[in-house]
């Protein structure tokens, strides 16, 4: 972000760009807290901030419908599912020092190298490219619905089948087994029900 601002500093930034950069910095900070926090529940709550920031970025890019879908599905349901998962696997509430594995520095090196290479390529490729945000909003619910149900009906219906398959698969996976398992099969659900 700072690299992009420095290499195009001769341009006078518009208000939308300033807002985008500020929200982007907040989003990136929340994402860094998500992957770096030692408290597991705090990581999930920082993920809410990051996903909400991305929703605001969608609004700034005039994609309103995507922004509300993002708020509804990601902030509304995916994070709740993740919190349920954390609670059901008895994640420690306090700080857990072993949240990061031993290959932390390898991961940092790989991510840093990928970020440097990709930022360099992207900035070099789109140095003289501007998005025209004027005119009618391109991502309003009307435009999105029209394109979705006029040109993308078949993928939409296929996706509903996929969601149904995922639902059935999740139910089949999380159903209690045939009873031929060991002590963990009887211990863990009892403890889980006691917790809930």
């Amino acid at each position: 972000m700072t690299l992009a601002a420095a290499s195009h500093g001769f341009l006078s930034p518009t208000g939308v760009e300033i807002a985008f950069v500020l929200v982007g910095i907040a989003t990136l900070g929340a994402a860094l807290m998500t992957v770096g926090s030692r408290q597991l529940v705090h990581a999930a709550l920082w993920l809410v901030v990051a996903l909400g920031g991305i929703a605001v970025e969608y609004l700034l890019l005039t994609a309103e419908f995507i922004a509300w879908v993002q708020v509804l599905i990601y902030v509304g349901s995916v994070v709740v599912l993740l919190l349920f998962g954390l609670m059901l696997t008895k994640a420690p509430i306090g700080p857990s020092p072993d949240a990061d594995s031993g290959n932390r520095w390898v991961a940092l090196t790989v991510a840093g190298a990928a970020a440097a290479a990709l930022v360099w390529v992207v900035v070099d490729a789109f140095r003289a490219t501007w998005i025209d945000l004027d005119g009618a909003a391109q991502g309003s619910a009307e435009a999105a619905g029209r394109s979705l149900f006029r040109f993308w009906v078949l993928p939409f219906e296929a996706l509903s089948v996929l969601l149904l398959a995922a639902l059935v698969g999740a139910v089949a996976l999380s159903r209690r087994g045939g009873g031929a398992k060991g002590a963990a099969e009887t211990l863990a659900p009892a403890a889980r029900e006691g917790r809930l």
Binding site: A4, V21, L61
Partner: peptide, 11 residues
């Protein structure tokens, strides 16, 4: 808006 801003943020 400059296209580099969302692209760099996504990266």
């Amino acid at each position: 808006m400059h296209l580099a801003y969302p692209a760099v943020l996504a990266v």
